[in-house]
Design a protein around this nucleic acid. Sequence first.
DNA 1: CTGCGGGCATACCTGTGCGGTATCGGCGGC
DNA 2: GCCGCCGATACCGCACAGGTATGCCCGCAG
Lengths: 281, 281
Amino acid sequence: METRELRYFVTVAEESHVGRAAERLGIAQPPLSRAIAQLERRLGADLFVRTPRGMALTSAGETLLREGRVALAAVEAAERRTRRTAEPDRGSRVVLTAKAGASDELMAKLLDAYAAEPGAVEVEVVLSPPGHQALMLRDGRADVAILHRPFDDLSGFDCDVLAVESQVLVVPAGHETSHRTSTTVAEASSIPDLPLPRWPELDGSYPAGDGPELRDLTQILQLVRLGRAAIVLPESARANLREGLAVVPVSDAEAVTTVIAWPPHSTSPGVAALVRTAGRL
Amino acid sequence: METRELRYFVTVAEESHVGRAAERLGIAQPPLSRAIAQLERRLGADLFVRTPRGMALTSAGETLLREGRVALAAVEAAERRTRRTAEPDRGSRVVLTAKAGASDELMAKLLDAYAAEPGAVEVEVVLSPPGHQALMLRDGRADVAILHRPFDDLSGFDCDVLAVESQVLVVPAGHETSHRTSTTVAEASSIPDLPLPRWPELDGSYPAGDGPELRDLTQILQLVRLGRAAIVLPESARANLREGLAVVPVSDAEAVTTVIAWPPHSTSPGVAALVRTAGRL
DNA sequence: CTGCGGGCATACCTGTGCGGTATCGGCGGC
DNA sequence: GCCGCCGATACCGCACAGGTATGCCCGCAG
């Protein structure tokens, strides 16, 4: 199977529509139809059922979508890391990615501590939208990442745990909920007039709902201060809260684990040193 | 990058020789030369240095070899698992692979316990040569594997630990070493007239040395009984020893961890049930 | 019931590029 | 200095990816 075929398949699977997929791929519809049919013939398996409204995945198709995405990311990673290795200043750079606005105190400590190490190389920090860190690690755009369980998919990575923390509900100071000593996830998500924000999906779209769309933390915290929203955050976010906000522990929220993760076959000494430093924090 | 190019590159890298690689690939030498040159141009990186004796990898080439093998295995896995999903009796089979002759008591218990579970599906057990289990898991030939740290490369898999055991030296009964209460790795590997066997590499070849070539355990144990070899094995191997053999603990040998491992994106309920059963043993 | 539009498949043509054969150039060894 | 090994280059033919035009099927509206 060639990566071209796999890319075609994944696009059609995502669009459920040959025409739109062809457009996204920059080719005409008939060659794409033919490529899919040929792939099905070669695999000896139906990947789609043709409906009058488009294409729907079969169970074999779902398998290929799941595994194929991983495989494509691996090929991309191989390509990108090879290019990077060949760059003249190779080895002298490590790309670390983290969620914008999360764990920043820990990150600052880590970067300071690492910079003080003998032989430390330049660390390029790439802040990316929620959930993109694992993707960047998978496709080679990053060498190492700060991830958060249970939100990120750690499967296939090596990692060290940096911190475990519980979650708290942030509400406007003085709001009736702020006097409680503890609350629950169910309660937090049904406070009258204080909807929880909607987090963006990986493709940047937002689920339907009545909460505000979360773009960055300070924006949401401002809304909370204004009495228009509430938000559940890891405990460490407390450090950044300004006046006008109150926090209430959420007793049944899953603990948030902050980890430093890297691709399992990494040979970069920079990554190794960074991880070692992180482990000593 | 297409998988064809990647396969070509990996073959040339393994052979360090375009002619032999072309032969292995079943194509002529010039198209292969051209494909490699084209790949280098597209990546903007030299992958090989041309020596008068053949081709030698650059550091960028080493990166691509390492990452490319993983990527190729991922593509193969996607293909194989898709084919398997499409088979009429899908779901009704889980392929488990393990090293021939290792952990067999544990395996027997596991298979028995699993078979007794409600809704258990057929488990096809594939015994493979040492070190091949991880490869089979990576390229989709197996769904779940029994692996042994530190011998197998677990990177990229999810796993549960099943057992941790120390290692023992097996010598002929009555041999002077057999009266010791403990020994070390260094001592074990330098007993006069009792060489340790040579384990096969992944490609089936054997390293140079004077020990016998290990093909299967009973054969080696017979040699030990005959006073022609010694061998270091995990403690559990004791169960299978017949008379004429003595064991001595090896104090500084690394502990052997037996794990059950599966590909991180597995969705097979059979695998999940098998792992759950294993965890309860 | 019929006409229409959306959606995928088929037919057919064209050009790119992969793979083949023949040959060259460069470097070591005898 | 000649020969042999090895990779690169030159050139050719065909297979196949991709384009345009069109067909077929199905749901839906009138």
